[in-house]
């Protein structure tokens, strides 16, 4: 059982993705933010923070573990990792790896839309299985688990949710985005150099 269950009732529609990200954008201070797939499409349009790391191209399923490595390396910083639901399904074991690591400074936010956007919107297996990502996170031992499907509720409770004891798992039920257009924010080597400079590890 999780210690801090902040789940709200889910609806099928889900909240619009960009406003959901904007909620976090308003709360973000000096946290490291790791994005991938759908979040890496939209977050860079909203944020130009030097501690953003857009884990693209072709890193589907890997973002939580990159974020965990950063969290272990930088225990004085908070790390926020966005992950898609399809990404999450590729590496469910990493939920256990996170909690086993002892890292407290990590927030894993899963954007659940039920489809693989990058390949044209095919359904993930989670829908047919009626999989409950928040329940999986609870079972994996996350200290705090929250789930939101309503933008107003997420807006109202986001700050409190991010202040819960870590590691935290936040499920955001989001609406599908019809057009998938993921543009690289630039050469990886240059992005890594900027990111390391911002971290002070370059």
């Amino acid at each position: 059982m999780d210690k801090h269950d902040q789940s709200s009732r889910r609806s099928d529609a889900g909240m619009p993705l960009v406003p959901a990200l904007e909620v976090l954008l308003r709360l973000r201070t000096d946290q490291i933010v790791v994005t991938t797939m759908g979040s890496a499409r939209d977050w860079p349009k909203l944020s130009k923070h030097p501690l953003d790391f857009h884990y693209i191209p072709s890193a589907m399923g890997h973002a939580p573990m990159l974020a965990l490595g950063l969290a272990l390396a930088q225990p004085a910083r908070e790390v926020i990792a966005f992950n898609g639901d399809g990404c999450m399904l590729m590496s469910l074991g990493c939920l256990v790896t996170v909690t086993a690591s002892g890292a407290k400074n990590l927030t894993l936010i899963v954007l659940e839309n039920g489809v693989y956007e990058v390949t044209g919107g095919q359904a993930t297996a989670a829908g047919a299985a009626r999989a409950d990502f928040a329940a999986l996170a609870r079972g994996a031992g996350f200290e705090s688990v929250a789930a939101f499907s309503d933008l107003a509720e997420w807006t109202k409770r986001a700050a409190d949710t991010l202040a819960l004891p870590g590691p935290r798992f936040v499920l955001l039920k989001v609406a599908r985005v019809a057009d998938y257009d993921l543009t690289s924010p630039g050469p990886m080597v240059e992005r890594i150099a900027r990111f390391r400079a911002a971290l002070g590890t370059g």
């Binding site: 490595g69 272990l72 390396a73 074991g93 790896t97 690591s101």
Partner: peptide, 20 residues
Amino acid sequence: VRVCREGEAWTIAAGLQLGG
């Protein structure tokens, strides 16, 4: 650091190295 699948190990190591 214990992982559940070996693919996790490379990516955690990447985050650790980026983090200094």
